[in-house]
Design a protein around this nucleic acid. Sequence first.
DNA 1: CCTTGGTGTTACCTCGGGTAACCTCGTACG
DNA 2: CGTACGAGGTTACCCGAGGTAACACCAAGG
Lengths: 222, 222
Amino acid sequence: MAGDGTAAPAGAAGGPGQRRKELLDAADRVIRRDGPRASMNAIAAEAGISKPILYRHFTDRQGLFAALAERHTAGLLSAMRSALALPLERRDLVEAVLDTYLAAIEARPQVYRFLTHPEAADGLGPGRPLAPALQKIADEIAASVRRHVDLGAQADLLSETWGRGITGMVLAAGDWWLAERPCPREEMVRALADLLWGRLAAAGQRPVAATGAAPREREPEE
Amino acid sequence: MAGDGTAAPAGAAGGPGQRRKELLDAADRVIRRDGPRASMNAIAAEAGISKPILYRHFTDRQGLFAALAERHTAGLLSAMRSALALPLERRDLVEAVLDTYLAAIEARPQVYRFLTHPEAADGLGPGRPLAPALQKIADEIAASVRRHVDLGAQADLLSETWGRGITGMVLAAGDWWLAERPCPREEMVRALADLLWGRLAAAGQRPVAATGAAPREREPEE
DNA sequence: CCTTGGTGTTACCTCGGGTAACCTCGTACG
DNA sequence: CGTACGAGGTTACCCGAGGTAACACCAAGG
């Protein structure tokens, strides 16, 4: 708001929102270091100021969170939008989108952990299971589905459900992948694309009875 | 452990773990009322005792959480296991599993919200995106997939990924459904099953530019 | 009788979000 | 030149929540 300090005592005299940007940078650093649990004290300390200033710029923790999230969301979201707009065959498009997301969380895990798993009092309320960033991604996906795919009468319900569902799927799988690194990224992309592509339906039945024992259990790893 | 008070001043003198069970009941009530943010103070008050007793029975908040979660997890998990063990065609099995989950969260939203969205310091650590209950469900799904579906060389990676992915998908979609109630349960089940069933791949291209219009290939709903 | 062990309580510590009151310094104006 | 004022900043505090220490009560047992 009235943040255009004419002569800042400690810092660079830049534009109007300069100070705010610096604070966000500091918060970013702390979060990158401590994760989403970073305390306001820590952020203020990192910024070299004291808490009340922080609270003058961002009403409360939620406000800072929101501002910070919005900033990064912009990047992630535009990346996703770009991916969704690529002139690709549908399957390739799906893979591109998945890869874009995974690449993003791979590049800055802490930041995206913060984006995707807010502290439950920060970004999301009682019935708000998806963080705002993910919510927006889900909306983008839903819109893209509705735009490209002919789903008949239930198009709206299906696309919204799928948007959320796909987002949640990639979120969960992506988090796991990030934590365990069970495989390179491309494999993960293919695994998820395969799932979305109906491989669960198409794959053959294993030669196993309902409750009976399987003949041969494992086959060599390629 | 040593909780068999011979003459309890306020309460029933039951078995050894009686008191513990009562405390869990109280915690349950509070959580059902206030959601997962319930404070230890509130729980103690609801139980009619004071905090230290609570802490004598459950080491810390995480301990209480874990005990409480385990209790409900048992129910949810066994329901899921039963569903996964039904002697159904694969598609029907998927629908049964989805329906089981949605029915469960529909029946006791607060409890399952607590199970599925722990307070980020309670049930899950830095790289632990899925709550324990969901983690177990994911494992069950993965095992079931690995057991029933022939996935070739990458079976392990695929099944684990899918387990997590499906769980995350249902979680996100289920939360949204619970919050918005956009449709009856069966429709939701079908929407999600359709997604898992490759309808995204199979549905016709919509007559829109970008990649050129495709011949309409959709088949009528139902 | 005094001791011992279990059950409970109050009162406290710490830490984090959020705020009130005060302080300081550069500037504009009498 | 001196003083009033306002922007920007600080210390010190409040409150609530997790967690604990020290003390109080009561029954059994030497």
